[in-house]
């Protein structure tokens, strides 16, 4: 023990100065802000630069030092993207909205239903079935992609939005997350007393559980929407070459060919990114919370 250490136990719970204070209680200094600002710059610059090129002409990409301020050709570039014949960019945005919305709604409904059942209802086999859900959390779904393609072929769904929507309709993570949240926030007594008043299980779900888990629905909804919107590999496999691409597939189409015009590619990329940036701006708090809660509980 060094001489600096206060006598223990400290009578007035006084903390030693400077050292030994928990980081959470340490006021951030200049260096902390500086380094965080650098991190922010690193995180935001590619997005900013996407916008710079999306608003510029071809010259901007052929000069040194590189262009750093936005140009004035955003509308021109956007017009070009939308009018390209075999890219179907406008349709692809609509498709992405459809896919992400349907998938999100479905995940929220089915996963909260199952999560409620696992959290608050007693039935035979519930533990084993929940264990199954947890185990499947870690299985990389990409590995079944070849067989999924064959299955979709048999159903005749390849090349349609159904092929993209169907595999996303439920997620093991959704059930897991909902269950955890319901266990922690919906008191058993509330469910019991509603039962005593003659409420059916579905009524308990609709009137008690749903209102109580609204924050969790927001979090899961945002995370699901973002992930679905950004999905690339499977939509590429099943949709490329059709008239129904999602926006991610359409952007990759923009970037294919012998001579790629990057101001168009990045204009398209920028348009497809904006909805997510808006969501982060509005729901950022929820997304942060969702990720952090998931970390502590898992």
């Amino acid at each position: 023990m060094s001489a600096v250490a206060p006598p223990r136990p400290a009578p007035a719970r006084r903390r030693p100065r400077l050292m030994g204070r928990a980081p959470q209680e340490t006021q951030a200094g200049l260096w902390t802000y500086l380094f965080l600002a650098l991190t922010m710059l690193f995180a935001a610059f590619p997005l900013y630069w996407m916008f710079v090129i999306a608003t510029s002409d071809d010259e901007a990409l052929a000069k040194l030092p590189p262009a750093i301020v936005p140009g004035d050709r955003f509308m021109t570039n956007v017009d070009e993207v939308f009018s390209l014949q075999d890219v179907y960019f406008a349709a692809s945005l609509v498709n992405s909205v459809i896919v992400a919305t349907v998938v999100t709604a479905s995940v929220l409904f089915f996963c909260s239903l199952a999560g409620f059942a696992f959290a608050k209802l007693r039935f035979k086999g519930s533990n084993a079935l929940m264990l199954f859900v947890v185990l499947t959390l870690t299985v990389p779904n990409q590995l079944g992609i070849v067989a999924l393609y064959i299955v979709m072929g048999k159903l005749g769904w390849n090349g349609t939005l159904l092929a993209v929507i169907a595999p996303g309709l439920v997620t093991a993570f959704g059930v897991f997350y909902m269950r955890q949240f319901i266990v922690n926030t919906v008191p058993d007594e509330l469910v019991e007393s509603a039962r005593m008043d003659g409420a059916t299980t579905m009524r308990v779900y609709a009137n008690i559980v749903l209102p109580a888990i609204r924050p969790a629905l927001a979090v899961l909804g945002l995370l699901t929407f973002v992930a679905t919107w950004n999905d690339f590999q499977w939509p590429l496999i099943t949709l490329s070459g059709t008239d129904f691409p999602t926006s991610m597939v359409a952007i990759s189409d923009l970037a294919s060919g012998n001579y790629v015009i990057y101001r168009r590619v990045l204009a398209g990329a920028f348009i497809a990114t904006v909805p997510l940036l808006v969501m982060l701006f509005i729901g950022g708090r929820q997304i942060v919370r969702g990720i952090m809660e998931g970390a502590v509980k898992s």
Partner: peptide
């Protein structure tokens, strides 16, 4: 929220930027 900017950005979009 700021450090999550890359997380919500589509990989397709950011890869295009990094490609350049």
């Amino acid at each position: 929220v700021g450090v999550l900017l890359p997380y919500v950005t589509p990989i397709v979009a950011s890869t295009m930027v990094f490609s350049v």
